[in-house]
Computed example of a mutant assay.
Amino acid sequence: MSRCTNINPGTLPTPAVEDQWAFEVKQDGQRAMIYLPGDGTALVRSRSGADITPAYPELLPLADSLGGRPAVLDGEIVALDDRGHSDFKRLQQRMGLACSPARAAYLAARVPAHLMLFDVAHLDGRPVTGLPYTKRRELLVGLGLAGPAWSTPVAIVGHGAQAWEMVRNAGLEGLLAKRRTSRYQSGVRSKAWIKIRFVRTADVVVGGWVPGRGRLTGLPGAVLVGEQLGGQLHYAGSVGTGWSRAERTRLAGLLHVAAIDTCPFAEIPPAAGAQWVLPRLVGEVGYATRTRAGRLRHPSWHRLRPDLAPGDLA
C-alpha cells in the first residue's frame, strides 16, 4: 500500500535557488491516497491507512474518470468556504463518518468535499515514485482530472517570492515548496517537500490538562502538550487559549474518555493539579517563538488533527 510523502516545515527557498523548486498552494484539509484499480471502483485512504471511502461519496465518480487506467493518486480533501478557500473547521463536519455512510451522504449535499490532486504514485500498473517531481507532475496534468468534486491545481515553477505574495494577498495559509528533482518518498519525511506557513505552527500530542476555574469549571483551562522525540513524549508547553466554548466542551469529553493515572511525558510538567490522558490526541497550535529548552512561547490552540496519529509526528 502506498503511503503519503510527509512534509517538513521550513522557509521559502532563496531567489538564488528558487528555479529548482515548484510551489503549490497549501491546502487545509485531510491528506488522502486515492486507489483507482481501473474496474470502476475507488478506494480512499487517510494518511494513517484507514479506509475513509464511505465518508466522501462524492469522490466515487472519480473511478470512471480515467477510462479504465489504474492509478494511485495523492491529494488533499478539503471543504471550500464562500471565497473558494479550504476551511478545515468546515471539513471537520465530514471527517470521521466512514462508519456512517447515511450521515456522510446527507452532509455531502450540504458541506461538499473537494479533492485537490497534486501527485501520482502509480499509473498503468507500475510505480512512478522513482520519477522526479517534474515528470510525475506532467503525468498527473496529462490525466486531465477536473470534475465536480476534484481538480488538479496549478504548480508554479520558480518565482517563489511572487507565489508567496499571491497566497498572502489572497488570505491563504501558505505554500508547499517541492524540489523539482525529488522522488516520491513513501511514508517518510522528505526534506525536498517543505511546508511554509505565515504563522509558526506545530503539531503536538496532548498528554494532560489542567481544570479551568470560574466560568470554565468542569472544562479544561489548559492542555499540556508535547512532541515526540526519540520515542518519548517531551513536554512542549501549556495551551490555554484559542477555543470557543463549544470547542472546549468537545475537547473536555475527549479528555475524560482518555483519562489515565500516570504521566505520559518523559518529564513531569510543572503544572499544579494536572490530570493525565493517553497521548493519542493530536492538535495544531500556533506560537510566537521557542525557548532554548524547546518550549513553545505564547502558544494558542488552532484545531484538533483527527487525521493525524502521534506516530505520524515521530
Score class of each variant (00 low, 15 high):
4 C>T: 02
285 V>H: 05
19 D>E: 11
83 R>N: 11
28 D>F: 14
191 K>Q: 06
167 V>H: 08
125 G>R: 09
171 G>L: 08
279 P>H: 08
268 I>R: 15
314 A>R: 14
145 L>D: 00
40 G>N: 05
27 Q>Y: 07
309 A>W: 10
115 L>Y: 06
204 V>A: 08
147 G>Q: 00
241 T>F: 11
32 A>F: 00
129 T>R: 04
29 G>W: 01
73 L>F: 06
292 R>A: 05
113 A>G: 08
129 T>L: 05
191 K>W: 12
195 K>M: 13
301 W>V: 06
268 I>Y: 14
79 A>R: 02
184 Y>D: 00
200 R>E: 04
59 L>I: 13
154 V>L: 09
264 P>W: 13
156 I>W: 08
185 Q>K: 08
92 Q>T: 14
246 A>P: 12
278 L>V: 11
118 F>D: 10
9 P>Q: 03
207 G>R: 03
28 D>V: 09
119 D>N: 11
287 Y>I: 13
258 A>P: 07
82 D>C: 09
84 G>Q: 13
256 H>G: 09
174 G>K: 05
48 S>W: 08
139 L>H: 08
174 G>R: 01
16 A>H: 07
222 A>K: 15
262 T>S: 15
97 L>W: 10
290 R>Q: 04
68 G>T: 09
108 A>E: 04
182 S>R: 05
17 V>E: 09
39 D>M: 03
229 L>P: 13
276 W>S: 08
251 L>F: 00
88 F>Y: 15
106 Y>I: 12
253 G>D: 04
75 G>E: 03
160 G>D: 02
187 G>H: 01
214 G>K: 14
82 D>G: 14
6 N>V: 00
296 L>W: 15
130 G>W: 01
